[in-house]
């Protein structure tokens, strides 16, 4: 084996094969329903039509997409702001305890999504633990309505995806050479400058990866908006889910799904370009 042009392809082959066989083929099969009609009893009637795409163009769906993108983006920014210092602190802990800290960061998420969300409800609701605590501390005003608000949804999303961002950022931070930072400091750069010029660019790929996790998982989430948001907020993932299962309209669900997938992939490709540029990668376009 030598580092020639075929080796990267060989390395990627098993993963690519898995994705093509089990994701691309089945999904194309289902997404192709977008070109057909909904049967009278649901299901798919094989009469070709473009009606479903016309329905996707309805501004209502663009509005729902933009609104859920805004909520997801807010959750992403907050999650990164919390996760970065946490990942940084973990990467500065003694080497032996780093894996333990990481493990304890994900451990809460080996319980179940639904019961974790119920736990938040118990904390936040009007008759909940936080309000009771306030009352026993002598607070006499109206109980705080923290639940069924956009902030509750964002809190739930940040909470559930925070460990993923910590993991992603940690994975780039831990390879940072402390000597590099010392060198930067020795050359007279202050801590802020060292962070902005050395640490941040090197860890930006991790921040981007973690940010992508929160964003895509949030925009597709439907349990948190339903329970913590009281069903008052809709994410796009929910919209596609409703078409397939509630409305029993697979062709329209397929059209909405395809539009969502394409939009998200374009956004992610742009994001990847921007990150590569900002973190000053030596490879890729620069090398050519």
């Amino acid at each position: 084996m030598s580092l020639n042009a075929t080796r990267p392809n060989l390395l990627a082959a098993p993963g690519v094969a898995w994705l093509v066989a089990f994701m691309v083929v089945p999904c194309l099969l289902v997404l192709s329903y977008a070109f057909f009609q909904r049967g009278v009893w649901g299901g798919v009637e094989y009469t070709v039509t473009l009606e479903n795409f016309a329905r996707v163009a309805d501004p209502l769906y663009a509005k729902i997409f933009l609104n859920s993108a805004r909520i997801a983006l807010t959750a992403t920014v907050i999650a990164i702001l919390i996760a970065y210092p946490a990942a940084y602190a973990i990467s500065r802990a003694p080497r032996m305890s780093q894996p333990i800290l990481l493990f304890f960061a994900v451990l809460p998420f080996w319980s179940n999504y639904l019961i974790r969300t119920y736990a938040w409800i118990v904390l936040l609701n009007r008759e909940g633990l936080i309000n009771n605590l306030l009352r026993s501390l002598g607070y006499t005003g109206e109980p705080l309505s923290m639940l069924y608000t956009e902030s509750a949804v964002i809190t739930g999303l940040v909470y559930n995806y925070l460990p993923f961002v910590i993991l992603a950022i940690y994975s780039t931070l831990s390879r940072l050479n402390p000597e590099l930072m010392e060198a930067s400091r020795d050359l007279g750069a202050g801590p802020v400058r060292t962070f902005l010029r050395v640490t941040l660019p090197l860890t930006l790929p991790g921040v981007a990866a973690g940010g992508v996790f929160v964003f895509v998982l949030s925009i597709g989430n439907f349990v948190t908006p339903a329970l913590l948001g009281g069903g008052r907020f809709q994410m796009v993932g929910n919209l596609v889910y409703d078409q397939f299962l509630t409305a029993n309209d697979w062709p329209f669900g397929a059209a909405l799904g395809a539009a969502l997938i394409l939009t998200m992939i374009v956004l992610l490709l742009l994001q990847a370009r921007a990150t590569a540029h900002a973190s000053g990668e030596r490879k890729g376009e620069a090398a050519q």
């Binding site: 580092l3 042009a5 080796r7 990267p8 392809n9 060989l10 390395l11 990627a12 082959a13 993963g15 690519v16 994705l19 093509v20 994701m23 691309v24 999904c27 289902v30 997404l31 992508v212 996790f213 895509v216 998982l217 597709g220 796009v236 993932g237 596609v240 889910y241 397939f244 299962l245 669900g253 397929a254 799904g257 969502l260 997938i261 998200m264 992939i265 992610l268 490709l269 990847a272 490879k283 890729g284 376009e285 090398a287 050519q288």
Partner: peptide
């Protein structure tokens, strides 16, 4: 490893690697 050792970035491959994260669960 395969994607990062490639000399030339492939948008198709990038999209394939992103796709599982953005395909709605129900689809």
């Amino acid at each position: 490893l395969g994607m990062e050792t490639r000399r030339r970035k492939s948008n198709g491959l990038e999209a394939l690697a992103f796709a599982p994260m953005v395909i709605p669960d129900i689809v």
